[in-house]
Amino acid sequence: MVPLNLNRAIKEGARFVRRLEAESGQKISDCNQCGKCTAGCPLGFAMDLMPNQVMHLIRVGLWAEVLESRTIWLCSHCAVCTTRCPRNIDLARVMDSLRITARREGRIGSERSIALFNEIFLDSVRRYGRAHEFGIGLRHNLLTRRPFKDSDLGRVWLRRGKLKLGTRKIKGAAEIDRIFSEVERTEDGR
């Protein structure tokens, strides 16, 4: 393995760290690598980078590896890490910020479908003011080219009335739309 040049990596990563710290409000160097976040993470078994490794990689300037990892998308923001961190780092927020950055920079790697799901979900919320589950499922299946995924389950749910084919907009649709526009405006302003 070619040695990592630490001076260069840290120097080059400094801007990223600054921005991430600003966005998440967390100080990356606070982490002392005790690993309690990883020890408690319910999704750790599926992650390619452990939560504490995420922190360390950012610290030494290897943020690109973090943005392309599955971990930031597998994180379900359950916040076990946050509540247990002895240094009071809100790691769940850091993960959130990382997802936002990844999406913004178009650096979504292997976990494309999770990002896609998020987009379809938000689209549904924007359109109807609520999650139209059938529509979200169908769109996600079509766009990930697996049209019949979960169709057995879908049939049962439909029959029992747990899944509705159509939906209706909520009352305050205009407000919802305003929220979305506002968010978009602030994001662009960065």
């Binding site: 070619v2 040695p3 990592l4 040049n5 630490l6 690598q33």
Partner: peptide, 15 residues
Amino acid sequence: VRGVDTLLGRPVEVD
């Protein structure tokens, strides 16, 4: 300075 970052699991270098 050639060393290792064992938390990273990689060899590292510092000028």
